[in-house]
Nucleic acid binder design. Structure first.
Length: 285
DNA sequence: AATACCCTCAACCGCCGTACG
DNA sequence: TCGTACGGCGGTTGAGGGTAT
């Protein structure tokens, strides 16, 4: 993870920073600021080049930096801004308070870019199936992008309007839920909106779908019906779910029809969670 | 248990734009 | 106008941890 400490041709240290070095740099800058990066290490008592000091401060020591995993909002924003701006990491970082350009760049290369590559690769495989259905596949970077790009989603049909309401303003929807239905056990997932009748049992509906086909049902709960006992967290949705690459199948016309690739095996996780949930229902837990 | 391979991310490198003498 | 110094940026590297075989 960290490089070994080494020494360059000028006798200055390279590689991983020690706690002592971090302490010196932090203490100096907090007291005197960084008025000249090239001269700073000499005054701060560090055997480092100015560039190294600057990088360490900017990317690691500067107060206010966030560490740790990215929120869904941050992930979406990075993907969106990269589509708009390209590899302008500093410009992207300016829109994400507490995140550095280096960190975002790393995140892009290791998560989003990799995810898109996997989606494309999987898409080529899944394309064989889709080809038989004469459908058009659009690769999307996330579930939400897939939703937004769907023709059906942008149509004026009642169903599309329901879906929009549910997804965009979940707090204003009483009992609508959104269902993802797996049509094959290992890879492709279709998605559709279901208008749950407020008088019917959500659990019963799900059970009927499960027993009525060989499908697996995953539910993205965007509902606000407190009587319904489903919630996103109930199913233990993998946090990456919302940013995983999806594909939109536009062959369905006005039928809302998304195809998602289970590139990370996330749906099996969801499925087991759902099965656990149903088991609990049966056991009246 | 050993080894190979993959993934992550801190850190480095080289280039570019700007300021200044 | 030119040369130099500096800060900033984006691309790349590679150590180390995780995972698969």
């Amino acid at each position: 993870m960290v490089r070994d400490a080494r020494v360059n041709e000028k006798g200055l240290r390279k590689g991983a920073w020690s706690e002592e070095e971090d302490g010196k740099l932090r203490a100096y800058i907090l007291r005197y600021g960084h008025w000249n990066w090239r001269l700073l290490p000499r005054f701060a008592g560090l055997d480092r080049c100015g560039k190294s000091c600057r990088l360490r401060w900017m990317n690691y020591l500067k107060p206010g930096l966030k560490r740790g995993s990215y929120t869904k909002e941050e992930q979406d924003l990075i993907a969106k801004l990269h589509d708009e701006l390209g590899s302008k990491w500093s410009a992207i970082a300016a829109r994400l308070p507490g995140r550095t350009d280096n960190e975002i760049k790393n995140y892009w290369h290791t998560h989003i870019k990799t995810g898109r590559r996997k989606a494309n690769k999987s898409g080529e495989q899944a394309g064989i199936v889709r080809e038989e259905q004469s459908s058009e596949i659009i690769h999307c970077n996330s579930f939400w992008e897939a939703v937004a790009r769907s023709d059906a989603y942008n149509s004026t049909s009642d169903e599309a309007q329901e879906v929009r309401r549910t997804l965009e303003k979940p707090d204003q929807v009483s009992s609508d839920m959104y269902i993802l239905e797996s049509s094959s056990p290992d890879s492709v997932v279709s998605a559709g909106a279901v208008n749950w009748d407020s008088d019917s049992s959500v659990e019963q509906n799900c059970s009927e779908i499960l027993s009525g086909s060989n499908s697996s049902v995953f539910i993205s709960c965007r509902e606000n019906d407190e009587s319904a006992s489903f919630s996103e967290s109930s199913f233990g949705f993998h946090e990456s779910f919302w940013t995983e690459p999806f594909m939109v199948d536009t062959s369905g016309g006005q039928d809302f029809n998304l195809w998602a690739l289970d590139v990370e095996g996330l749906f099996s996780t969801c499925l087991s969670s759902f099965d656990d949930y149903l088991q609990k229902l049966e056991n009246n837990e």
